[in-house]
Design a protein around this nucleic acid. Structure first.
Length: 418
DNA sequence: TCTGGGGTCCTAGGACCC
DNA sequence: TCTGGGGTCCTAGGACCC
């Protein structure tokens, strides 16, 4: 048995934790640079506020409905996420954190301890709410995809109050029949449209299809989804928490950039983020992709990318920084209004099996990186950084509606007035 | 006045080679 | 005379998720 536990409109709910005054109001959260709407609380959802619309396009609707607007406060969400995950982790010793607000629990070998999945689910909900003031939904199912479906039912379908269980044929059918095919994990907007064209409208309709036929008509991915919906596990636990095959760090700037040094610094910053993520996963890379681009929404769209090949795989921030400095001249073009840039590690391999070059001195220094990671783990990311990533103030994100960092900065601690 | 997220994986099609 | 295979690698763009 699997469970999927996730927060209801996580970012919006997180904004309400330390600001009770907005708990009963409609709240939306914007993406980086206040670009798009990325979280809509249940109250705002009733006003039909669309998700992932550019903010400036829906500004009027928000104003008309007196919706509370917040910029992304990632520092706050990361901290609240960690608290939430810790609480959830107490309910199962085999937890996989799938995203900032979702975790899978695997109850294999643990099922005899739980007699009533419904009440266990409510137990999780109550405890998370009591300890973090975050609302979560809980779905149980025999496969990861069915747990996802149950989770969807728990939060969105009538007749459920935050918990749903698929543990029998009737419960599976009831939920899948009430679920739009578009809401199935792995079926997006495009695929849903094609499926509906051949009269596959609900999750149940999809589950009834011949898996092989779906593979032939669409893809191997959809075949897997159909099998999962039928109760046949195709995403093994190992695969659910498989190592990433590529790791990126990209960001758009708050304001356009033309300055070479600022752009280079931004790239090196992304490089160190990618390097850190690689080390966390125990991976290293042979190929680093760098790209810079102007706005695709404007004329004279400029985009340039470059792949740097290391002689041996590495996850060393300093090596990345040197590589970026070296090839930066191939990317930069004077006069271009840069809008976005990023770094990605491709072709990852495990640090366990580093293949050194027989005729060359090592290019990196894993011990130094370990030391850097240890210090930053203890005193906070950014405490120790390489000199070339020193941030310039030229490309700060636009965050007009930022809430305080309630839990991570002393001077932002919430105050209670008596 | 102008504004448009970030991350990961997959696939089709082109280039190149034998 | 004319036709024309199959594998690998690379890349851009598509699709999906949150």
């Amino acid at each position: 048995m699997y469970a999927l536990v996730d927060a209801v409109a996580f970012y919006a709910s997180a904004e309400k934790v330390f600001d009770p005054a907005i708990r009963s109001k409609p709240v939306v959260v914007l993406t980086n640079n206040d670009g798009c709407i990325c979280a809509v609380c249940p109250i705002a959802r009733k006003l039909a506020i669309p998700k992932f619309q550019p903010y400036f396009q829906v500004k009027k609707i928000l104003e008309d409905n007196q919706v509370v607007i917040r910029s992304s406060n990632y520092e706050l969400y990361a901290d609240l996420s960690e608290r939430m995950m810790n609480v959830i982790g107490r309910f199962c010793d085999n937890q996989h954190i799938y995203s900032i607000d979702e975790s899978f629990l695997n109850f294999t070998g643990f099922t005899s301890f739980v007699h009533d999945w419904h009440s266990y689910g409510h137990d999780i909900r109550r405890t998370v709410w009591r300890e973090t003031k975050l609302p979560v939904g809980v779905g149980f199912g025999p496969t990861a995809t069915l747990a996802k479906a149950a989770n969807h039912a728990a939060k969105k379908l009538p007749g459920f109050d935050g918990v749903a269980v698929i543990d029998s044929e009737p419960s599976r059918l009831a939920i899948l029949k009430a679920m739009d095919v578009q809401d199935v994990w792995g079926v997006g907007r495009r695929l849903a449209k094609k499926l509906k064209a051949i009269n596959i409208n609900t999750a149940f309709d999809l589950a009834e299809q011949e898996p092989r036929k779906m593979k032939r008509l669409f893809s191997i991915v959809l075949e897997r989804t159909v099998n999962e919906l039928r109760g046949k596990s195709c995403l093994a636990w190992d695969e659910v928490r498989q190592d990433k095959k590529e790791i990126f760090s990209t960001r758009s700037f708050g304001e356009r950039i033309t300055d070479a040094t600022a752009l280079k610094t931004a790239l090196i910053n992304h490089g160190t983020i990618v390097a850190r993520k690689l080390r966390t996963q125990g991976s290293q890379t042979k190929r680093l992709l760098l790209f810079v681009a102007s706005s695709p929404h404007q004329d004279d769209y400029y985009k340039k990318s470059y792949i740097y090949e290391f002689s041996v795989a590495t996850a060393d921030s300093c090596v990345f920084a040197n590589a970026i400095s070296e090839i930066f001249k191939h990317l930069y073009k004077p006069g271009v209004q840069f809008y976005k840039c990023g770094v990605g590690a491709l072709e990852l391999s495990s640090q366990m099996f580093q293949q050194p070059d027989l005729f060359q001195a090592p290019i990196d220094n894993p011990k130094l990186m370990q030391c850097l990671d240890n210090i930053n783990a203890r005193y906070g990311v950014g405490t120790l950084a390489i000199a070339s990533q020193t941030p310039t103030t030229r490309w700060h994100m636009k965050r007009e509606y930022l809430s305080p960092h309630y839990t991570t900065r002393w001077h932002n601690l919430p105050k209670i007035h008596c």
